[in-house]
């Protein structure tokens, strides 16, 4: 998937290897070994990063987050997609587009 494509609910997401992650005061801070760039994922972003250690669909991800956090699934989905698109632009995740079957 390219960074300009819209992520759909059945698309599968997994994080890429090669990042050093550390917890700092409840937030996750990360360094990409490949690019040398540093990132702050924040607390919610850090939880998403944990969840995508194993491949799962966007829909599954939203369901888990909506169960853990005080957020409506629809609004959660919009914000998670925006976050994942940024991760994709930074080449930090892989997304497998669903075949639609």
């Amino acid at each position: 998937m390219t960074a300009s494509t819209q992520i759909n609910t059945n698309d599968r997401v997994i994080r890429k290897e090669g990042n050093l992650v550390s917890d700092m005061g409840g937030e996750k801070v990360m360094m990409s070994i490949t690019s040398g760039k540093y990132y702050n994922l924040g607390s919610t972003g850090g939880r998403i990063w944990e969840l995508i250690a194993e491949e799962q669909t966007l829909d599954q991800l939203i369901q888990v987050l909506a169960a853990e956090y005080d957020i409506e699934p629809e609004r959660c989905g919009e914000q998670v997609v925006s976050f994942l698109e940024h991760l994709l632009r930074e080449d930090l995740i892989d997304i497998t587009v669903s075949s639609g079957v």
């Binding site: 801070v29 760039k37 540093y38 990132y39 702050n40 994922l41 924040g42 607390s43 919610t44 972003g45 998403i48 169960a67 853990e68 956090y69 005080d70 957020i71 959660c76 914000q79 998670v80 976050f83 940024h86 991760l87 930074e90």
Partner: peptide
């Protein structure tokens, strides 16, 4: 028991 939601944001840090 649900945690407070904060919109996830990826902050690129300038070292």
């Amino acid at each position: 028991e649900k945690k407070e939601w904060q919109a996830p944001v990826l902050e690129v840090l300038d070292v």
